[in-house]
Simulated scan of single mutants.
Amino acid sequence: MVDPLEAKQLAAKQMKEIQKKERLMKRRQIEAINGAWAMIGLTAGLVIEGHTGKSILEQLAGYWSAIAHFFVR
């Protein structure tokens, strides 16, 4: 027969392992989503660079300038 205390301890240990795996899977999913957004942003920056001739850094400087002027007025 199984000792109830021992069964609870085993169940708790197994639950911790399951939670660790779930956290790892969640982190991987978040990293994949983050990477996808980064690629979308880079692609958009390169497309805009092709159309306007402004580098990505110049684009960012323009965006920050516009945001600053919006709040500083």
Rank of each mutant, 00 (worst) to 15 (best):
K54G: 00
L42R: 15
N34Y: 14
I30T: 14
D3P: 00
H51A: 15
K13S: 06
A12I: 02
L24N: 10
Q9S: 13
A32C: 09
L46P: 02
L5K: 13
V72T: 15
R27G: 05
E49M: 06
E22L: 13
M1G: 13
A68W: 04
M39A: 15
A36K: 15
A12Q: 09
G41T: 11
H51Q: 11
M15F: 05
V2L: 11
V47L: 07
K26A: 14
T52P: 00
Q19H: 07
A66E: 06
Q29I: 10
A68Y: 07
L10T: 03
L46E: 13
E6P: 01
W64P: 00
I67Q: 02
I67H: 04
R27F: 11
T43W: 13
H69V: 12
Q29V: 08
W37Q: 15
A7F: 03
M1N: 07
G50F: 04
K16F: 02
A66H: 03
E22R: 10
Q14H: 04
A32M: 12
L5D: 08
R73N: 14
T43D: 10
H51P: 03
M1F: 11
E58W: 02
A44V: 07
E22W: 07
G41Q: 13
G53Y: 01
I18E: 10
E6M: 05
E58H: 00
A32R: 14
K13P: 00
W37F: 15
A38Q: 15
P4R: 02
R27T: 11
R27N: 13
I67F: 05
P4H: 00
A38W: 10
P4I: 01
Y63E: 10
S65R: 08
F70Q: 06
K13G: 06
E49G: 03
Q19S: 08
T52I: 02
T52Y: 00
M25P: 01
E49T: 14
K13N: 05
W64Q: 13
W64N: 12
I30E: 15
